[in-house]
Design a protein around this nucleic acid. Structure first.
Lengths: 152, 152
DNA sequence: ACAGGACGTGGATGCCATCGACCTGCGACT
DNA sequence: AGTCGCAGGTCGATGGCATCCACGTCCTGT
């Protein structure tokens, strides 16, 4: 991970569809060299994939909510995590410090669907309680931060 | 937004670097047709961009936290929002229902940096108080949900 | 019936991805 | 010190892809 890799990461983070030729021009290397670098970034796990950023409303997922989950003291967090993974509405799942072990970002189409999801969550074995906060609007999401070099 | 558009969105959401030729094969159209459809999805705002999904640890952003912000009753939410936008550490910013007007997902390198960020936030005009929860680990983030057709 | 538009196809053309051959600088070993 | 081996670069070739354009087809309103 040198300065050129960092630059490539930053470029791809902003526009994942840039051609290798264009990336090469931007960093001052040849296209094959960039191709190889990006390949290494992918196989080393630095680049985990490439995603189109889709307006959720356009695909009928206009309701975003954050749900904190308190787990029962008797259950194993890993087991609960696997149950949560089954729910496609959960876009993001953090394991948190604090009483509320998990924090979920969920995306559904309607408030009614959100209600059903909350009920399902509360019925999930290992879930003691949940607390839901509704996002009225996303001012921005997943904004790529300008990168600065850092120690390895 | 017909079924083919939805399929294209789903494909690009999973792998934003697919070629138009490959997309064309997957949906059973010619490459120029797909090219035009994707162009329209972009200009209509359905596709907002393409992002490489980067392991945050690899770029020195190993600490993730969620910060709720209570705003002072005297201030305008839009003004505060603009101030928050200046802070590059804030990856996501939701405007929430409830007492805590904003919920921020922030990404920093160290706990010390997080501390500095919290101090800065609390000094920001319009911020009455903040509450921070630290993510110990991200089980998954921005997982693309399998799409189902929906009404337009 | 027919004009117009939205949307598709196929062909042409120039750029891009990707492979292989080769070069170069550096660190490790003798 | 020489030199072996490797990491990582360049260049050139070639086949595939992006993209433009001309044209076909189907629907829709008059």
């Amino acid at each position: 991970m040198d300065a050129i890799d960092l630059r490539l990461v930053e470029l791809l983070r902003t526009n994942a569809r840039l051609s290798f030729a264009e990336l090469a021009r931007q960093v001052g290397l040849s296209a094959p060299a960039v191709h190889e670098r990006v390949g290494k970034l992918e196989s080393s796990g630095v680049v985990r994939g490439y995603r189109a950023d889709i307006d959720p409303e356009a695909i009928g997922l206009g309701v975003t909510a954050l749900i904190s989950v308190v787990e029962e003291s008797t259950t194993d967090a890993d087991d609960l995590q696997e149950l949560l993974r089954e729910l496609p509405e959960i876009e993001t799942c953090y394991f948190m410090a604090g009483v509320e072990s998990f924090l979920l970002t969920v995306r559904v189409g309607t408030i009614a669907e959100l209600e059903r999801l909350i009920v399902r969550l509360n019925r999930t074995p290992g879930v003691a309680s949940t607390r839901t906060a509704i996002a009225l609007s996303a001012k921005w999401e997943n904004r790529p931060r300008p990168l600065s070099p850092h120690s390895d």
